[in-house]
Computed example of a mutant assay.
Amino acid sequence: MKKLWAIGLTAAVLLAGCGEEESAESKETTAGAEGSEDSKEVKQELMKFYMSIPNTINAVDADLNAFEMNQAEDTLPEGEELQAMKAAAIASAEEAANAVETVEIPAALEEQQEKFDTAFAAMIESYEMKAEELTKDASFEAADEKFGEADAILNELLVEQDLAASSIYNEVSQ
Results as ranks from 00 to 15, higher is better:
Ala91Ile: 08
Pro77Cys: 04
Ala121Gln: 06
Ala59Thr: 09
Ile57His: 11
Glu28Phe: 01
Ser23Gln: 05
Glu25Thr: 07
Ala31Val: 11
Gly17Ser: 01
Asp151Ala: 04
Gly32Lys: 07
Ser139Cys: 00
Phe49Pro: 10
Ser173Thr: 00
Ala122Pro: 07
Ala97Arg: 13
Glu34His: 02
Leu154Gln: 06
Lys86Ala: 04
Phe67Met: 15
Glu73Met: 10
Leu158Phe: 03
Ser173Tyr: 05
Lys2Cys: 01
Glu156His: 08
Lys115His: 09
Glu95Leu: 07
Val103Asn: 10
Met47Trp: 05
Lys115Glu: 08
Ser26Lys: 11
Ala152Tyr: 03
Gln112Met: 12
Glu141Ile: 11
Asp151Leu: 13
Ile168Cys: 05
Ser26Ile: 15
Glu125Arg: 01
Thr29Met: 10
Asn58Arg: 04
Ile7His: 05
Phe140Val: 11
Ala142Asp: 14
Glu110Arg: 01
Glu133Gly: 06
Asn170Gln: 14
Glu41Val: 08
Lys130Ile: 13
Val13Glu: 10
Leu15Trp: 10
Glu104Ser: 14
Asp162Asn: 15
Lys136Phe: 01
Glu133Asp: 09
Ala87Cys: 01
Asp38Leu: 08
Gly19Cys: 04
Pro77Asp: 04
Thr10Trp: 02
Leu163Phe: 00
Asn55Glu: 03
Met47Ala: 00
Ala108Lys: 00
Ala66Asn: 08
Met1Lys: 13
Leu157Tyr: 06
Gly17Trp: 08
Asp38Gly: 03
Glu156Asn: 13
Ala119Ile: 11
Glu133Leu: 06
Leu14His: 02
Phe120Asn: 03
Ser52Trp: 05
Glu94Arg: 04
Ala108Glu: 15
Thr75Ser: 13
Asp151Trp: 12
Glu37Leu: 05
Glu125Gly: 01
Glu114Asn: 12
Ala138Pro: 12
Lys3Arg: 07
Glu156Trp: 07
Asp38Pro: 05
Leu9Pro: 09
Tyr169Gly: 06
Asn155Pro: 09
Glu21Ala: 15
Gly32Cys: 02
Ser92Arg: 08
Ala12Met: 10
Asn170Pro: 01
